[in-house]
C-alpha cells in the first residue's frame, strides 16, 4: 500500500461469502424483475414484447420460478452464514438498527442542506445501507411467502381462506414494484451515480469513500481493529464442529422442504382431455 496515495488506500469491506451472496441476489433479483414485472403489467404493450423475447408467457413463468429457487436458496444460505457468525463466531450483528442511525439520518440531511459543516461519522453499515438491507429481508420474506401461495394455490387453500390467493398476488406485485423502485432510486444512486462503489464485488473500499460514508469504521480499522472481530480459535473450532453437524442436518432438512415446496403440486395441471361429440345429428324430418 506504500506506493498508493492515502486517498486510494483500500480498506476491507466485504467477506467473500457476502460478495457471492450479493451476486446470487443480483442475478436472481434481476431475472425475477424482468420476468415478473411484464406479468404484473401484462396489458402494457412493452410487456408483451418482452414476453415475446423471452419465449412466451409459459417460458417466462418457468424462468421466474427457477430464479425464485435461486433467490430462496441464496436467502437460506444467508440465514445459515448469519447464524454461523452470530451464534458460533459470536460476531456482533452490526447490521442491526440502532438509535444512532436515526441521529446519523438527521445529521446527514442537515449536512446535505448545509446546516451542519461536517458529515456524521458512520459505522460499518450506515443508516442507508441498513434501511436497504432490512427492506431486502422484508421484501424477500413477503415475496417468498406470497410467491409460494401463488405457486401452490390448491395447497394453500387447504389451510387458508381462498381470498388469500388474490391478496397474495396483489402483495407480490406491490412488493415487486416497491423493491424495484427502491433499488433503482436508492441503491443505484448510491453505488453508481453518486460515485462508483464496487466494494461488493472487489471486497474493499478506497479511503476517501470510507471517510465519507463509514467514518467510525475507518477510525476503528486505522487504529488496528479487526475487520471481523471474532473469538479465539480453539473455542471456535469446537463450536464450529457442533454447528457443522447441526447445520448439515438443518440445511438438508431445509433443502428437502424447499424441494418439497417447489414440487408440491402441479397447479398448471395437465390439460383435461377434450370431449369429442357427434355434432351431426339431423332431425328426423328430412331436410328439404
Amino acid at each position: 500500500m506504500a506506493d498508493k496515495t492515502e486517498k486510494q488506500q483500500q480498506f476491507p469491506r466485504f467477506r467473500l461469502m457476502a460478495r457471492i451472496e450479493h451476486i446470487v441476489l443480483l442475478v436472481s433479483f434481476t431475472v425475477l424483475s424482468i420476468t415478473g414485472l411484464p406479468q404484473k403489467y401484462i396489458e402494457a404493450p412493452f410487456s408483451e414484447t418482452m414476453i415475446g423475447w423471452m419465449g412466451g408467457i409459459e417460458a417466462v413463468r418457468m424462468i421466474h420460478r427457477y430464479a425464485a429457487f435461486m433467490l430462496v436458496t441464496g436467502s437460506a444460505f444467508h440465514l445459515f452464514t448469519g447464524a454461523y457468525r452470530s451464534l458460533v463466531k459470536k460476531e456482533r450483528m452490526r447490521i442491526m438498527l440502532r438509535l444512532s442511525d436515526a441521529r446519523d439520518l438527521w445529521d446527514t440531511i442537515r449536512h446535505n442542506l448545509g446546516f451542519l459543516p461536517e458529515p456524521p461519522k458512520m459505522p460499518k453499515f450506515n443508516f442507508g445501507e441498513k434501511i436497504e438491507y432490512w427492506a431486502v429481508i422484508w421484501g424477500t420474506a413477503v415475496m417468498v411467502i406470497t410467491g409460494f401461495m401463488l405457486w401452490n394455490p390448491i395447497a394453500t387453500t387447504f389451510i387458508l381462506p381462498g381470498q388469500i390467493i388474490p391478496a397474495a398476488l396483489a402483495a407480490h406485485g406491490g412488493e415487486a414494484v416497491l423493491a424495484v423502485l427502491s433499488i433503482l432510486i436508492w441503491h443505484m444512486y448510491n453505488v453508481l451515480l453518486k460515485h462508483r462503489n464496487f466494494s461488493i464485488f472487489t471486497g474493499s473500499l478506497p479511503r476517501h469513500q470510507m471517510e465519507e460514508e463509514h467514518g467510525l469504521e475507518l477510525e476503528r480499522l486505522e487504529t488496528g481493529g479487526d475487520p471481523w472481530p471474532g473469538m479465539s480459535l480453539p473455542v471456535l473450532q469446537k463450536r464450529r464442529r457442533n454447528f457443522l453437524i447441526i447445520s448439515v442436518i438443518l440445511s438438508s432438512l431445509i433443502m428437502a422442504v424447499l424441494v418439497w415446496l417447489f414440487t408440491f403440486e402441479q397447479t398448471a395441471i395437465t390439460t383435461i382431455p377434450r370431449v369429442t361429440r357427434e355434432v351431426f345429428v339431423p332431425l328426423a324430418t328430412a331436410v328439404p
Partner: peptide
C-alpha cells in the same frame, strides 16, 4: 381442471 381443489379454493377466484 383442478381436481384436488378444496372448499376454500373457489374463493381464490
Amino acid at each position: 381442471c383442478h381436481p384436488d381443489a378444496s372448499a376454500n379454493f373457489p374463493d381464490s377466484w
